[in-house]
Simulated assay, not measured.
Amino acid sequence: MKLHWSPRSPFVRKVMIVLHETGQLPEVELVPNTVALHLPPDPEVLAANPLGKIPALVTEGGTVLFDSRVICEYLDLRSGTGLFPAQTEARIDQLRWQALGDGLTDILLLWRTELTREAGPWTAVTDGWRAKVRAAMARLEAEADALAAGPSGIGQVAVICALGQLDFRWPDCAWRAHFPQLARAEAVWAAWESVKATAVAGDGAGPDAVTAGQLTFGP
């Protein structure tokens, strides 16, 4: 298999965690690609995925899968690991947490890109994103005990990647101080070998100058 990949993409990280958890990483060739909303589409990625996005996985049979949700479920089915449970209630919980984690990640990515516009960000839009991020984090805090209990699955993986994006691109938001139950759960997840192996590395330059001061929690 071949994975169109970037070390800084939270959705690629989601697939990488699943590859680690399912023991399939040795079967995958990683193909580095640079993809961003403000850049022209990468020709190699566009040839594989008409949406021009990563991750995109080329299976052994030559089929190209795109969208991390599709790729992760394929890898789970292929391995029989159970990150997507068969039992209805457990499966819906995992899919709901995946949707919340992925949606939070989407907002954070779009927001950061909006902040880099030469004309300046559209305040009405960024104010809306701020409210949605706060609401999403509050919901995750309320469900942190449920997320931390029981078998882990794709829901926890998606939330891990969203929180990783907060740490990487919004490092001054101090989310752990405001969401202690979620912080406790995240500390456990951070010890997973798959999570440590896929950590997004910063450049050592300190807080992101683009996002600094843009996101706060609490009153």
Rank of each mutant, 00 (worst) to 15 (best):
A135V: 05
A183K: 12
A148W: 02
P171A: 10
R169A: 15
G128L: 06
A138I: 01
G150A: 03
L140H: 01
L163T: 13
A131M: 08
D172L: 04
C173W: 04
W189E: 11
A142M: 03
L182A: 11
A183L: 15
A144P: 02
R139K: 09
A135D: 12
W129H: 09
V159D: 07
W189Q: 12
Q165V: 13
G128N: 02
V157C: 11
C161R: 11
P151K: 07
G128W: 05
Q181W: 02
A136K: 00
I154E: 04
M137A: 06
D127Y: 00
A144D: 01
G120C: 06
Q156A: 09
D167R: 13
A136L: 00
L166C: 11
Q165K: 09
F179A: 13
A142H: 03
V159N: 08
A136H: 01
R176I: 05
G120N: 09
M137Q: 01
G128Y: 02
A135M: 09
W122P: 00
R169T: 13
A144L: 08
A191K: 15
W189K: 10
W122I: 03
A124V: 06
G155A: 08
F168H: 14
A162Y: 07
A136V: 00
A149R: 12
V125L: 05
P171I: 03
V125E: 02
G150D: 02
Q156E: 11
A183I: 14
L166M: 12
A138N: 04
F179L: 14
V157R: 08
A146R: 08
V188A: 15
A191M: 15
A158Q: 09
C161K: 03
F179W: 13
R130P: 01
A146P: 00
W189T: 14
E143G: 04
A158Y: 04
A148F: 02
A131G: 08
R169C: 12
P151D: 10
R139G: 03
P180Q: 13
L163G: 12
V159H: 08
A190L: 14
A136M: 01
L147I: 00
A174N: 14
C173F: 04
P151E: 07
G155D: 06
A119S: 11
E141R: 00
V188S: 15
E141T: 00
V133I: 05
E186H: 15
Q181A: 14
W129Y: 13
G153E: 08
G128M: 01
D167M: 13
H178Y: 10
A162D: 07
V159K: 02
A148S: 09
A144V: 05
H178P: 08
E186A: 15
W175T: 13
Q156V: 00
I160P: 05
D145C: 05
W129R: 07
F168C: 11
P180H: 11
A191W: 13
P121E: 07
E141I: 02
A136Y: 01
Q181H: 15
T123M: 06
A158H: 09
C173R: 10
A191I: 14
G164E: 10
R169N: 12
V133A: 07
A174I: 07
C161L: 10
A144Q: 04
R139P: 00
R184N: 14
D172A: 07
